[in-house]
Structures are given as structure tokens and as C-alpha cells.
Computed example of a mutant assay.
Amino acid sequence: MKRIFHYLLILCVAFSITGCFSLDPRESAAFDLSLNFRHFLLEKDITLFEIEELFGEPDAKSDGHPKVAISYIGGNFYWKNSEKNRKILESHIPRYFLENKDNFNKCLLIFGFSYDEVRNEYILNDVFCY
């Protein structure tokens, strides 16, 4: 499972690099979603537990010490979440995604964490959406 997730992660990065120059509105919306979540979450030291509490149970989790990655596929971080958390997330999700449920179908949201030995927790260090 770890290998599959790592290959998926590499594939997503490759697609994002080659797709940066495209004018596809879905790709630019995914880039906006990444930026919005980065500004919202990377301001503070957010832990893995806090992300899972806010975004819900991840669809996939790569458990490699000292780095961990979790991913949400197809907007599950929004649609399978509590009403309270949806309201928090709505202020950081671009309108493109909120206009229609189908806009989330091709969304892949990945959070990367590094282990902090001082705090003895995994701390968020990267957000990626495609």
C-alpha cells in the first residue's frame, strides 16, 4: 500500500508540474485550493490529529517515519464531514468547487507531515491539491 501511495504521489507531482502552464479552470481552481489551505493551515503548527479532526478520516495514509502523507479523494474532506467543519472549510474553498458537487470528483487533496521530535507529533509541512 505504501508503494502504491508513493507512486501516486509522484504521479500527482509530475502532473502538477506539467500542468502548471495550462489554462484549464479546474487546474487553476485546484491550485487556488492548495494556496488557500496553505495560508489557512501553515500559519500555525497544525498536527496530524488536528487535520484529521478538521477534515475527517483520510481516504489513504502513508505511514512512513519520519514523514507521513494523508490524502482525500473526490471531496470527501468536505462532503463526508460535519456541518460545523464544513462551515469552517467553506471560507477557504474556491467557489468553483462549491458551485457543483461534481467539481470535487477529480479533486485529490494531499497533506504532508514531518515528525517533530521535540513535540513528539507529526506537524503539517505541505498541502497539495490536484
Score class of each variant (00 low, 15 high):
1 M>E: 09
3 R>W: 11
12 C>D: 14
13 V>R: 04
13 V>W: 08
14 A>V: 11
15 F>K: 06
17 I>L: 15
17 I>W: 12
18 T>I: 14
18 T>E: 02
19 G>A: 04
19 G>T: 11
19 G>P: 06
23 L>W: 05
25 P>H: 07
30 A>W: 00
30 A>M: 07
31 F>T: 00
33 L>D: 06
39 H>G: 07
40 F>D: 11
43 E>Q: 14
43 E>D: 14
44 K>S: 15
46 I>F: 10
46 I>L: 05
47 T>H: 14
47 T>A: 09
47 T>V: 09
48 L>R: 08
49 F>L: 13
49 F>W: 07
49 F>S: 06
51 I>D: 08
52 E>L: 06
58 P>G: 00
60 A>G: 01
68 V>Y: 04
69 A>I: 05
71 S>M: 09
71 S>I: 02
72 Y>F: 13
72 Y>R: 06
74 G>L: 08
75 G>Y: 00
75 G>C: 00
78 Y>C: 04
78 Y>E: 02
80 K>A: 09
81 N>G: 12
82 S>N: 12
83 E>V: 12
91 S>T: 04
93 I>N: 07
94 P>C: 12
98 L>G: 10
99 E>S: 14
100 N>S: 11
100 N>R: 09
102 D>H: 09
104 F>K: 06
105 N>Q: 10
107 C>E: 12
109 L>H: 10
111 F>W: 07
114 S>F: 12
114 S>K: 15
118 V>G: 12
120 N>M: 10
120 N>S: 13
121 E>G: 01
121 E>Q: 14
121 E>T: 04
122 Y>L: 04
125 N>F: 13
128 F>V: 10
